[in-house]
Amino acid sequence: MSKKLIVVLSVLMIAAFVLSACAKATPAAPAAPKFKACEVTDTGGVDDKSFNATAWKGVTDAMSQLGIDGKYLESKEVADFEPNINAFVQEKCDIIITVGFLLGDATKAAAEANPGVKFSIVDYGYDPVIPNVLGQAFQTDEAAFLAGYLAAGVSKTGKVGTFGGMQIPTVTIFMDGFYKGVQYYNTQKGAKVEVLGWTPADGTGLFTNDFSDQQKGNDMATSLMDEGADIIMPVAGPVGLGAAAAVKARGNAYIIGVDSDWYLTAPDYKDITLTSVMKLMDVTTLNAIKAAMDGTFKGGTTMGTLANGGVALAPYHDLSSMVSADLSKEIDTIKAGIIDGSIKLAQ
């Protein structure tokens, strides 16, 4: 009785495979192959609301604007990088976009083994240059500098806060810029706005050491608010959403988003999102795809700056009434100053 059932089930499953195999074996005459852009994520996954997601937005933008095919593969751990990239090489992807420094070694190895395939890697660059890899790096501190100045100007308590997901350069560059922006405000205005959560001089600050547990973001924001901060910039991917939740629950404080414009990407918190420090990986990814399509693709590193729009400060949206006309004008002046080099961030 039971064995019969098992046999029937097994036969059904085998039949399903065989049938699908037959269906596969007679493909329709191939249409003209579309340009294919393929993204390999790092361990955060494609829906991390951070750089994997933003880079993927660049691919989907290219799909809708340029009519190309886009695919992605999620990596769960370091050992997945190499086979995932190779799967796309075998899929004959025209450009393979890898996301994050974790993929640095794997991308280099694959690029050198497949010189005919174009690669672009987000948040990484190679020295010396690999001719078929375009690195995408970002001068994020330029936009964060503006955010720091803005935060200092808006703060009522005279304290602003930040925290990071992990003490790594791509995170601390946000916090550095933010800190310097506040200091610049202090010297310009003779003010004494304090930055909680990051001290570039000795490299100490608040870090969740986690890019996924939102509760930790909630805790960080709560303790920063306890210390008196009323503007908080969380640099921790989705963990930052936990901070936004804490700020929203407490009230009387505001959030500065990172990577994308949180007013648009995290609309639950649009009433507390003062602005966002945008790192436009979607734009640089789209540009890399365009370059690969029209044959202008070249190896090297593109640096996203305020000047070329690779990084930017998001609009103030609903909270623009909080930013006085003078402050808004000052920020525009500083932006121009950074672009023309009269204000230098590196000291």
Binding site: A79, E82, D105
Partner: peptide
């Protein structure tokens, strides 16, 4: 095994 045979260096995100 993961380091010596597959990854050849160690990074965060070693294990899923």
């Amino acid at each position: 095994n993961e380091i010596l045979a597959v990854n050849h260096s160690m990074a965060i995100g070693l294990s899923s």
